[in-house]
Design a protein around this nucleic acid. Sequence first.
DNA 1: CATCGGACCTGTTAGC
DNA 2: TGCTAACAGGTCCGAT
Length: 271
Amino acid sequence: MPELPEVETTLRGIEPYIINKKINDILVRQSSLRWEVPVKKLKENIVGESFSKIKRRAKYLIFTSNLGNLIIHLGMSGSLKILLNMEAPNKHDHIDIKFEDKSLLRFTDPRRFGSFHWTNKSTEHPLLMNLGPEPLGNHFSGEHLFNFSRGRKLPVKNFIMNSKTIAGIGNIYASESLFEAGIKPHKAAGKISLPKYENLAYSIKRILQESINLGGTSLKDFVGGEGKPGFYKPYLAVYGREGKKCKNCVTILKNIRIGQRSSVFCSNCQK
DNA sequence: CATCGGACCTGTTAGC
DNA sequence: TGCTAACAGGTCCGAT
Protein backbone atom coordinates (compact mmCIF):
# COMPACT_ATOMS: atom_id res chain seq x y z
CA MET A 1 0.00 0.00 0.00
CA PRO A 2 2.26 2.81 1.07
CA GLU A 3 5.24 4.34 -0.57
CA LEU A 4 6.45 7.81 0.30
CA PRO A 5 3.67 9.72 -1.51
CA GLU A 6 1.02 7.54 0.14
CA VAL A 7 2.55 8.12 3.58
CA GLU A 8 2.69 11.86 2.89
CA THR A 9 -0.94 11.77 1.72
CA THR A 10 -1.91 9.95 4.91
CA LEU A 11 -0.10 12.53 7.01
CA ARG A 12 -1.88 15.44 5.33
CA GLY A 13 -5.23 13.68 5.60
CA ILE A 14 -5.10 12.84 9.31
CA GLU A 15 -3.14 15.80 10.68
CA PRO A 16 -6.01 18.31 11.00
CA TYR A 17 -8.04 15.79 13.02
CA ILE A 18 -5.30 15.04 15.53
CA ILE A 19 -3.29 18.14 16.37
CA ASN A 20 -3.74 19.29 19.99
CA LYS A 21 -6.61 16.90 20.68
CA LYS A 22 -6.48 15.28 24.09
CA ILE A 23 -5.96 11.53 23.96
CA ASN A 24 -8.30 9.50 26.16
CA ASP A 25 -7.07 6.00 25.45
CA ILE A 26 -5.11 3.69 23.19
CA LEU A 27 -6.67 0.33 22.43
CA VAL A 28 -4.39 -2.39 21.06
CA ARG A 29 -6.24 -5.47 19.82
CA GLN A 30 -3.20 -7.05 18.19
CA SER A 31 0.24 -6.16 19.55
CA SER A 32 2.19 -8.57 17.37
CA LEU A 33 3.26 -6.40 14.45
CA ARG A 34 6.70 -6.41 12.84
CA TRP A 35 7.95 -5.58 16.31
CA GLU A 36 5.92 -6.09 19.45
CA VAL A 37 3.90 -2.95 20.15
CA PRO A 38 5.10 -1.37 23.45
CA VAL A 39 1.57 -1.14 24.82
CA LYS A 40 2.43 -0.22 28.41
CA LYS A 41 4.91 2.45 27.38
CA LEU A 42 2.43 3.95 24.92
CA LYS A 43 -0.37 4.07 27.48
CA GLU A 44 1.86 5.68 30.08
CA ASN A 45 3.13 8.31 27.69
CA ILE A 46 0.26 9.33 25.46
CA VAL A 47 -2.97 8.93 27.47
CA GLY A 48 -3.89 12.38 28.79
CA GLU A 49 -1.45 14.08 26.43
CA SER A 50 -1.89 15.43 22.90
CA PHE A 51 0.19 15.61 19.75
CA SER A 52 1.38 19.09 18.83
CA LYS A 53 3.03 18.09 15.57
CA ILE A 54 3.17 15.25 13.03
CA LYS A 55 5.96 14.88 10.52
CA ARG A 56 7.24 12.31 8.06
CA ARG A 57 10.81 10.98 7.87
CA ALA A 58 11.35 8.39 5.12
CA LYS A 59 8.14 6.35 5.43
CA TYR A 60 7.91 6.83 9.18
CA LEU A 61 5.26 9.09 10.69
CA ILE A 62 6.41 10.84 13.87
CA PHE A 63 3.78 12.16 16.29
CA THR A 64 5.28 14.57 18.82
CA SER A 65 3.89 15.25 22.29
CA ASN A 66 5.36 16.92 25.38
CA LEU A 67 6.78 13.61 26.56
CA GLY A 68 8.31 12.26 23.36
CA ASN A 69 7.41 10.73 20.02
CA LEU A 70 5.14 8.03 18.73
CA ILE A 71 6.66 6.55 15.58
CA ILE A 72 4.47 4.59 13.15
CA HIS A 73 5.47 2.68 10.05
CA LEU A 74 2.78 1.34 7.72
CA GLY A 75 4.88 -1.54 6.37
CA MET A 76 3.56 -3.18 3.25
CA SER A 77 -0.19 -3.14 3.86
CA GLY A 78 -0.84 -0.70 6.71
CA SER A 79 -3.12 2.31 6.69
CA LEU A 80 -4.38 4.96 9.09
CA LYS A 81 -7.74 6.60 9.02
CA ILE A 82 -9.82 8.94 11.12
CA LEU A 83 -13.22 7.85 12.40
CA LEU A 84 -15.43 10.58 13.83
CA ASN A 85 -17.24 8.04 16.00
CA MET A 86 -16.45 4.52 17.16
CA GLU A 87 -17.28 1.81 14.64
CA ALA A 88 -17.02 -1.93 15.19
CA PRO A 89 -13.52 -3.04 14.21
CA ASN A 90 -12.85 -5.38 11.31
CA LYS A 91 -10.44 -8.29 11.37
CA HIS A 92 -7.25 -6.31 10.73
CA ASP A 93 -8.05 -3.13 12.66
CA HIS A 94 -5.30 -3.57 15.23
CA ILE A 95 -4.97 -0.26 17.08
CA ASP A 96 -7.26 2.69 17.94
CA ILE A 97 -6.07 5.95 19.46
CA LYS A 98 -9.15 7.58 20.97
CA PHE A 99 -9.54 11.30 21.39
CA GLU A 100 -11.57 13.30 23.87
CA ASP A 101 -14.17 14.30 21.28
CA LYS A 102 -15.02 10.62 20.50
CA SER A 103 -13.07 10.60 17.23
CA LEU A 104 -10.27 8.10 16.78
CA LEU A 105 -7.24 7.24 14.68
CA ARG A 106 -7.48 3.61 13.51
CA PHE A 107 -4.50 1.54 12.33
CA THR A 108 -5.29 -1.33 9.96
CA ASP A 109 -2.68 -3.75 8.64
CA PRO A 110 -3.50 -7.21 7.18
CA ARG A 111 0.10 -8.35 6.80
CA ARG A 112 1.31 -6.84 10.08
CA PHE A 113 4.60 -5.59 8.68
CA GLY A 114 3.84 -2.19 10.15
CA SER A 115 5.13 -1.03 13.53
CA PHE A 116 4.55 1.30 16.49
CA HIS A 117 7.43 2.68 18.57
CA TRP A 118 7.86 5.14 21.40
CA THR A 119 10.88 7.30 22.05
CA ASN A 120 11.37 9.96 24.68
CA LYS A 121 14.06 11.66 22.64
CA SER A 122 13.37 13.57 19.47
CA THR A 123 15.26 11.82 16.70
CA GLU A 124 17.41 9.29 18.46
CA HIS A 125 15.42 6.23 17.63
CA PRO A 126 17.72 3.56 16.15
CA LEU A 127 15.43 3.10 13.15
CA LEU A 128 15.80 6.76 12.19
CA MET A 129 19.49 7.19 12.86
CA ASN A 130 21.03 5.79 9.69
CA LEU A 131 18.60 7.11 7.12
CA GLY A 132 19.94 8.88 4.05
CA PRO A 133 18.67 12.27 2.89
CA GLU A 134 15.00 12.96 2.19
CA PRO A 135 14.47 12.80 -1.58
CA LEU A 136 12.45 16.03 -1.54
CA GLY A 137 14.85 17.82 0.80
CA ASN A 138 17.82 20.08 0.07
CA HIS A 139 20.52 17.54 0.91
CA PHE A 140 19.57 15.12 -1.83
CA SER A 141 21.19 15.54 -5.24
CA GLY A 142 22.68 13.70 -8.19
CA GLU A 143 26.07 14.49 -6.77
CA HIS A 144 25.16 12.69 -3.55
CA LEU A 145 24.13 9.59 -5.52
CA PHE A 146 27.31 9.73 -7.58
CA ASN A 147 29.66 10.15 -4.61
CA PHE A 148 27.89 7.54 -2.49
CA SER A 149 27.93 4.93 -5.26
CA ARG A 150 31.64 4.94 -6.22
CA GLY A 151 33.06 1.44 -6.03
CA ARG A 152 29.66 -0.16 -5.46
CA LYS A 153 28.69 -3.10 -7.63
CA LEU A 154 25.11 -3.69 -6.63
CA PRO A 155 22.30 -2.93 -9.12
CA VAL A 156 21.35 0.75 -9.13
CA LYS A 157 17.76 -0.17 -8.30
CA ASN A 158 18.86 -1.84 -5.06
CA PHE A 159 21.18 1.08 -4.42
CA ILE A 160 18.39 3.67 -4.51
CA MET A 161 15.98 1.44 -2.58
CA ASN A 162 18.46 1.20 0.29
CA SER A 163 17.36 3.73 2.92
CA LYS A 164 20.97 4.60 3.72
CA THR A 165 21.34 5.95 0.18
CA ILE A 166 18.09 7.92 0.10
CA ALA A 167 15.15 7.65 2.46
CA GLY A 168 11.84 6.29 1.30
CA ILE A 169 12.24 5.09 -2.29
CA GLY A 170 10.17 1.93 -2.78
CA ASN A 171 9.68 -0.47 -5.64
CA ILE A 172 7.18 1.61 -7.62
CA TYR A 173 9.04 4.90 -7.61
CA ALA A 174 12.46 3.29 -8.04
CA SER A 175 11.16 1.63 -11.21
CA GLU A 176 9.49 4.79 -12.47
CA SER A 177 12.39 7.14 -11.84
CA LEU A 178 14.92 4.79 -13.47
CA PHE A 179 12.71 4.61 -16.54
CA GLU A 180 12.37 8.37 -16.77
CA ALA A 181 16.11 8.85 -16.31
CA GLY A 182 16.89 6.22 -18.97
CA ILE A 183 18.91 3.95 -16.68
CA LYS A 184 18.43 0.18 -16.69
CA PRO A 185 17.66 -1.09 -13.19
CA HIS A 186 20.33 -3.81 -13.07
CA LYS A 187 23.25 -1.57 -14.05
CA ALA A 188 26.00 -1.47 -11.39
CA ALA A 189 25.54 1.63 -9.22
CA GLY A 190 29.25 2.46 -9.32
CA LYS A 191 29.35 2.60 -13.12
CA ILE A 192 26.81 5.37 -13.61
CA SER A 193 28.04 8.84 -14.55
CA LEU A 194 27.38 12.08 -12.70
CA PRO A 195 25.11 13.51 -15.43
CA LYS A 196 23.02 10.31 -15.36
CA TYR A 197 22.70 10.57 -11.58
CA GLU A 198 21.68 14.20 -11.94
CA ASN A 199 18.90 13.09 -14.28
CA LEU A 200 17.90 10.39 -11.83
CA ALA A 201 17.77 12.76 -8.86
CA TYR A 202 15.64 15.15 -10.90
CA SER A 203 13.25 12.34 -11.90
CA ILE A 204 12.94 11.06 -8.34
CA LYS A 205 11.99 14.50 -7.09
CA ARG A 206 9.64 15.24 -9.97
CA ILE A 207 7.80 11.92 -9.83
CA LEU A 208 7.42 11.86 -6.04
CA GLN A 209 6.17 15.45 -6.03
CA GLU A 210 3.69 14.81 -8.82
CA SER A 211 2.38 11.72 -7.09
CA ILE A 212 1.97 13.60 -3.81
CA ASN A 213 0.08 16.33 -5.65
CA LEU A 214 -2.32 13.66 -6.94
CA GLY A 215 -2.78 11.96 -3.57
CA GLY A 216 -0.48 8.99 -4.22
CA THR A 217 -0.95 5.80 -6.18
CA SER A 218 -4.07 3.80 -5.40
CA LEU A 219 -3.27 0.12 -5.68
CA LYS A 220 -5.65 -2.41 -4.20
CA ASP A 221 -7.68 -0.45 -1.70
CA PHE A 222 -5.35 2.30 -0.60
CA VAL A 223 -7.10 5.44 0.54
CA GLY A 224 -5.58 8.44 2.23
CA GLY A 225 -6.48 9.54 5.75
CA GLU A 226 -9.61 11.24 4.50
CA GLY A 227 -10.80 8.21 2.57
CA LYS A 228 -9.99 9.60 -0.86
CA PRO A 229 -8.16 7.42 -3.36
CA GLY A 230 -4.89 8.49 -5.01
CA PHE A 231 -4.82 9.39 -8.69
CA TYR A 232 -1.22 8.75 -9.76
CA LYS A 233 -1.74 5.25 -11.14
CA PRO A 234 -2.55 6.25 -14.76
CA TYR A 235 0.83 8.01 -14.91
CA LEU A 236 2.85 4.90 -14.12
CA ALA A 237 5.08 4.20 -17.12
CA VAL A 238 6.57 0.82 -16.21
CA TYR A 239 5.41 -0.47 -12.81
CA GLY A 240 2.69 -3.08 -13.35
CA ARG A 241 3.01 -2.74 -17.17
CA GLU A 242 5.05 -5.87 -17.94
CA GLY A 243 4.26 -7.17 -21.44
CA LYS A 244 2.77 -3.83 -22.54
CA LYS A 245 4.30 -1.36 -24.94
CA CYS A 246 6.74 1.26 -23.70
CA LYS A 247 5.15 4.72 -23.58
CA ASN A 248 8.10 6.19 -25.53
CA CYS A 249 8.83 3.53 -28.15
CA VAL A 250 7.46 0.26 -29.54
CA THR A 251 9.43 -2.07 -27.23
CA ILE A 252 7.53 -4.52 -25.03
CA LEU A 253 8.37 -3.92 -21.36
CA LYS A 254 10.25 -6.68 -19.61
CA ASN A 255 10.07 -7.81 -16.01
CA ILE A 256 13.20 -9.13 -14.31
CA ARG A 257 13.71 -9.89 -10.64
CA ILE A 258 16.33 -7.81 -8.87
CA GLY A 259 16.79 -8.36 -5.16
CA GLN A 260 13.62 -10.48 -5.05
CA ARG A 261 11.53 -7.56 -6.34
CA SER A 262 9.95 -7.33 -9.75
CA SER A 263 11.57 -4.72 -11.92
CA VAL A 264 9.85 -3.65 -15.11
CA PHE A 265 11.87 -1.70 -17.65
CA CYS A 266 12.29 -0.85 -21.34
CA SER A 267 15.36 -2.49 -22.83
CA ASN A 268 15.48 0.17 -25.55
CA CYS A 269 15.01 3.37 -23.54
CA GLN A 270 17.02 2.33 -20.49
CA LYS A 271 20.76 1.83 -20.93
C1' DC B 1 32.84 -3.59 4.54
C1' DA B 2 29.42 -4.91 0.71
C1' DT B 3 26.08 -7.96 -0.82
C1' DC B 4 22.56 -11.45 -0.71
C1' DG B 5 18.81 -14.20 1.10
C1' DG B 6 15.70 -15.05 4.65
C1' DA B 7 12.50 -13.52 7.77
C1' DC B 8 8.20 -11.43 9.37
C1' DC B 9 2.49 -12.01 7.82
C1' DT B 10 -2.07 -12.45 5.14
C1' DG B 11 -4.61 -12.04 0.95
C1' DT B 12 -5.14 -12.45 -3.98
C1' DT B 13 -4.34 -14.45 -8.26
C1' DA B 14 -2.34 -17.52 -11.80
C1' DG B 15 -1.72 -22.08 -13.10
C1' DC B 16 -2.62 -26.84 -12.99
C1' DT C 1 -14.31 -25.98 -8.76
C1' DG C 2 -10.40 -26.69 -5.77
C1' DC C 3 -5.71 -26.99 -4.50
C1' DT C 4 -0.99 -25.05 -4.58
C1' DA C 5 2.51 -21.87 -5.50
C1' DA C 6 3.95 -17.45 -6.46
C1' DC C 7 3.66 -12.87 -5.60
C1' DA C 8 2.32 -8.23 -3.35
C1' DG C 9 3.42 -1.33 -1.85
C1' DG C 10 8.96 -2.70 3.27
C1' DT C 11 13.17 -3.23 5.48
C1' DC C 12 15.91 -5.32 9.23
C1' DC C 13 19.20 -8.82 10.32
C1' DG C 14 22.37 -12.53 9.98
C1' DA C 15 25.35 -15.30 7.00
C1' DT C 16 28.85 -15.15 3.54
